[in-house]
Amino acid sequence: MQWIQSAMSTTRALALRGVARTIAEGPEVAVVADSVVGDRRRLTLRFTAPSVTLAYRVNGAAYLRAIAIDGIALDSARYRRVPDALSIPFTAPPDSGFTAVIEAPADSAVVLRLAAVTAGLPLMRELRVPARPAGIVAVQGGDVTVRFRWVEVGRLMQKDE
């Protein structure tokens, strides 16, 4: 479990204990539409998750731009800087999920990194987390469970003309 401490970049003492992996609903993505015109691939994706916050990040392709979230156009002209990867968190997504339209190079595979954050810790048979003492409060995100999933949307074989 040394990797956890190094991943958190801390020299503070941590109390760690290994537990069995929990099975829980994670973030999902479905391809609604996938087309290529010229050198651009346009993907319409539907994201769902039982979460407080759902974030996605496009890896593995030099994305061109995000077009819209739930039908609302995104204006990248107002960005302070051009991001090196597309990363959009969506707080309190509806139960039905949300759609995102992105563009990427036509010949690329798009790899999505999904993260769903829910309040509280999962129930674990072999571990009981004691109640927080009075006067001690959670900081930053508090007690949360984060579920990650990597999804690859492969290369499209058929081009629209």
Rank of each mutant, 00 (worst) to 15 (best):
T118Y: 06
T44N: 05
Y63N: 03
P50W: 12
V58C: 03
L64M: 08
A116N: 01
A92D: 15
L114H: 05
P133K: 04
P122V: 07
T44C: 10
G38A: 08
Y79K: 01
D70Q: 10
P50F: 07
F98P: 01
E103I: 04
N59P: 00
A33R: 15
A73V: 12
G141C: 03
V110H: 07
R46Y: 00
A77R: 14
V52H: 12
V58W: 00
S51D: 02
S35D: 10
G141R: 07
Y56C: 03
V139I: 14
G97R: 05
P50T: 04
T53V: 15
F47H: 03
V111L: 09
D107I: 00
R80E: 01
S76H: 14
G38N: 09
A68C: 10
I136H: 09
D84E: 13
T44D: 10
A115T: 13
A77F: 06
V139K: 12
P133N: 06
V58P: 01
D107R: 12
G97A: 09
L114W: 05
R42C: 07
L127I: 01
L123M: 13
G97K: 05
P93G: 05
L45H: 02
Y63R: 07
R128I: 12
S108K: 07
T118D: 11
A68I: 10
R125T: 08
V111Y: 00
L127N: 00
A134G: 08
R42I: 08
E126L: 11
A119P: 00
D107L: 09
A49G: 10
G142C: 06
R125L: 08
A131N: 15
F47Q: 00
A61P: 00
L64F: 11
L54F: 02
P122G: 13
A33D: 15
A61V: 02
L86S: 04
G135S: 02
L123N: 11
Y56M: 04
A119L: 08
L54Q: 13
T48Q: 07
S76V: 13
E126P: 02
I72K: 12
R40M: 06
Y79L: 14
I69A: 11
G38M: 06
L45S: 02
I67N: 05
T91Q: 05
R80M: 03
A92V: 08
L43W: 00
V129Q: 05
A131K: 13
P89E: 14
R81K: 06
T53F: 00
A100T: 08
I136F: 11
A106P: 01
A109R: 12
P83H: 09
D107S: 15
N59V: 13
D34W: 04
S51M: 04
P133I: 04
L64R: 07
